[in-house]
């Protein structure tokens, strides 16, 4: 078979194309940056630990919404026994009032577009 050259060239082109995003970021100097979150908060402590919130906030918000909307249970008891009103707009955003710096930065970095804001209102004074 004398197609070897063609096949190898094809494989190389394929590999180049598929790894393009990595090269592009390396050359552009944008590789592996971490978004810096600005936390403006009235409280020192979020409802749960930072580690938990970082990885599980979406699950927590899902549980909250099901609990409030479907079961009419609105009070969340945190691990440390503190009680909170389960509300994205009125509890979370009360502290994290800087949606652009807090929510969006990380969501943009990860290319996720949560649909929360299609309905839930970002407090007026902190809107972009």
């Amino acid at each position: 078979m004398n197609n070897r050259g063609m096949i190898i060239a094809g494989i190389i082109i394929f590999l180049c194309l598929i790894t393009f995003p990595i090269w592009y970021n390396v050359v552009g100097g944008k590789a592996a940056y971490t978004p810096e979150l600005k936390i403006v908060s009235k409280e020192k402590q979020c409802v749960e630990s930072t580690k938990y919130m970082r990885s599980q906030h979406m699950q927590l918000l899902n549980d909250w919404r099901n609990s409030v909307v479907r079961e009419d249970k609105r009070t969340y008891t945190a691990l440390d026994g503190k009680k909170y009103d389960m509300s994205l707009s009125n509890t979370c955003l009360n502290c994290h009032s800087n949606k652009a710096d807090f929510c969006d930065k990380c969501h943009n970095y990860l290319e996720v577009t949560p649909t929360c804001w299609n309905c839930h209102v970002v407090p007026e004074e902190n809107k972009l």
């Binding site: 707009s89 299609n118 309905c119 839930h120 209102v121 407090p123």
Partner: peptide, 21 residues
């Protein structure tokens, strides 16, 4: 005038009175 304490709706869903739950 948006009431910030209550969500709006998004396009593509049905809505109705909720007896002010």
């Amino acid at each position: 005038k948006v009431n910030p304490e209550f969500p709006t709706r998004t396009k593509g869903v049905v809505e109705k009175c909720n007896f002010c739950e």
